[in-house]
Amino acid sequence: MYSLLQLLTRFGVHIVFLILQIISFYFIVSYNKNQREIFINSSNIYTGKINELTSEIRDFVSIRVINDSLKRENATLIENLIRIEYLNEILPEYTDSLLKYSVISASVCNNTFNQKNNHITLCKGALEGIRPGMGVVSATGLVGIVRNTSPNFAHVISLLHSQTRISCAIKSRNAYGSLVWDGRDPRYMTLESVPKFETVAIGDTVITSGYSTVFPKGLLVGRVVNTKPKPGSNNYDIRVKLSSTLGSIKYAYVIHNFLADEQNKLEKEVNNE
């Protein structure tokens, strides 16, 4: 008891100071809106930072699952984009049956882009529904056309191939042509057979025309960087900078056109006549 009193007389002042300060700060934080908000928000900053760190660690551990779900989500979104592109052409009664596209997401197993003829191998094959002749796109642009499938893999001819011919159009103009690769710079391709009387400006967007069954219309291909008349003909040679970065793609989406077989059969019959 005596030592307690001794303690109190020695530290009495400090104890009283602490008590009074606590009372004052209680007043400050309870009754003053600004200070209360700062008080509560500061404690939130610290808890917020800790939460951020733990969620980053958890995300890192489950990154494969997250990637798979993102791939599926991307495939659905690309499907929706294609559907919207065609939406204002389709009569309301036929919305369900005409022009259905579905998108299959796949990872890239193998990729070449600096040879004369380039190929890409996808990690999904015939078992997932991929057939030869389907178009392949990525998040940034076109990738190529499926040539061969095995049960688990698909062999895709890249855009950067001497035999690639993609039917393209120039957005908001009436110009159509074929996109080919000259074998040199992997960033640029040439749009041929665009008649000279069409007006084409540098910076115009090049999109797929939808005239072939491989790619739906409206997919971004690239931008015009140069127009040069082809000597000895009535056409332009338009140099297009590709929007897709074929050197660094990890995920690709295969476009399945449900009506492709029907259209191809009909066109072949007309050609054979």
Partner: peptide, 11 residues
């Protein structure tokens, strides 16, 4: 300003 002046003066 409940408490603000009190805290400063006590300190």
């Amino acid at each position: 300003s409940p408490g603000v002046h009190a805290a400063a003066t006590v300190t």
